[in-house]
Computed example of a mutant assay.
Amino acid sequence: MHIETSDPSVAVLIPCYNEEITIGKVVTDFRHVLPDATIYVYDNNSTDATARIAAAAGAVVRKEPRQGKGNVIRAMFEDIDADVYVMVDGDDTYPAEAAPDMVEKVLEGYDMVIGDRLSSTYFAENKRPFHNVGNRVVRGAINILFDAHVTDIMTGYRAFSFTFVKTYPVLSKGFEVETEMTIHSLNNNLRLYELPVQYRDRPEGSVSKLNTVGDGIRVLSTIFRLIREYKPLPFFGWIGVVIGVIGFVLALSVTIDFWHTGMVQRFPTLIGAVLLLLVGLLSIVAGIVLDTLAKNSRSRFILDSNMSAYVYRHNR
């Protein structure tokens, strides 16, 4: 959606959980580079002084009782109306200086601008090697499956248009929400722009809320679920082909024995082979049916996005 206005409203969204060490600086930095923006800090059950410090720095502070970053983003997207949204973590790992350029790209017509850490300093600054490996694995898998070239799949620094925010269904509850956003955008052929940003590791005393193993499993589960929903034909098709090939090989071995002896000596194998062939065929058919439904869902999404943009422009 291209916004035809000389004075667009900008909302900076900062989901926070126990970030008292860094939140004051983050709010101050974004107030400096985006002086006309409204900065929202959503406190997700913090047990420290995050909310008080954020309010003192000039942010609008709200509470979100449902634990998890995905739940916080869902609340933000539901509650706040703006022409442009900038989302950033409260841990002071992303540079506020990049925000004006991200806002400008949204105003040019992009649906989502991605703050690309991986093209700059992420792998040098990030002190968690398993996170580096995880980023590469997730990036490679998604780009192959969606025939895309996105560099940073899981960044927490993004900018969005009004239409994206109001039509994006936030389903994930935790940190896997960024991966979900990227897959949603690729599946619906949205306009994406990657802007390289300088990443810096957390300052001393600031503790990451990420659990390398637990959150990694949730991210992989999210990818698995979204591929099943967005790409059902390749997903179920390949499962069907593998199962069908196994069934065919077993049936072929029984057929060869019958050719040589004139007798079916392995009835259990033959029955299992036929069942595997049927299951493989049904899986392929299910993939075809679900692929049709997925295409209809993408069509509805486009119509919803167009209607949202139309209503928004005519209500300004």
Rank of each mutant, 00 (worst) to 15 (best):
T93M: 10
Y110K: 07
E108M: 11
S120K: 14
E97S: 14
A96P: 00
L118W: 10
G90T: 02
I114L: 13
V106H: 08
S119L: 12
F123E: 11
R117S: 09
F123R: 13
I114E: 03
T93V: 15
A98L: 04
V113L: 03
D91W: 00
E104R: 15
A96W: 00
G115Q: 01
G90C: 04
L107Y: 06
V103Q: 03
D89H: 12
E108F: 01
A99R: 00
A98M: 10
L118H: 10
M112L: 14
D111M: 09
V103I: 05
E104S: 15
D89M: 04
L107M: 11
G115P: 00
S119G: 14
D116K: 07
P95V: 03
S119Q: 13
L107N: 04
A98G: 08
Y110P: 01
M102N: 06
I114Y: 08
D92M: 06
D92W: 11
D101N: 13
Y94S: 15
D111P: 08
L118S: 11
D101R: 15
R117M: 09
Y94R: 13
E97P: 00
D89V: 02
V103W: 05
K105Q: 14
A99T: 02
S120W: 11
T121K: 10
Y110R: 02
P95K: 05
E97V: 12
A99C: 02
M112H: 07
G109A: 08
D89S: 14
L107D: 06
M112Y: 09
D91S: 12
D116W: 07
E108N: 10
A99Q: 02
R117W: 09
T121V: 02
G90L: 00
D101Q: 15
Y94N: 15
V103T: 08
E108K: 12
D111K: 07
M112F: 07
D116S: 13
Y122L: 14
T121Y: 04
M112K: 12
L118Q: 13
V106L: 05
G109D: 09
V113Q: 03
G109H: 09
V113E: 02
V103A: 05
I114P: 01
I114V: 15
K105L: 13
K105P: 00
P95N: 08
D91R: 01
S119D: 09
A96Y: 01
S120G: 06
Y94A: 14
A96L: 03
D92K: 06
D101T: 13
T93Q: 10
D111T: 07
D91E: 14
V113S: 04
A98I: 01
L107G: 06
E104P: 02
K105D: 04
P100Q: 11
F123N: 12
E108L: 09
E108I: 00
G90M: 01
D91N: 13
E104M: 11
V106S: 07
V113M: 03
D101A: 15
D101E: 15
M112T: 10
D101Y: 13
D89Q: 12
Y122N: 01
D116N: 15
M102W: 10
V103G: 05
K105R: 15
P100H: 11
E97T: 13
A96R: 00
T121E: 08
Y110A: 00
Y122D: 00
E97M: 07
L118P: 00
G115F: 03
V106M: 03
A98N: 05
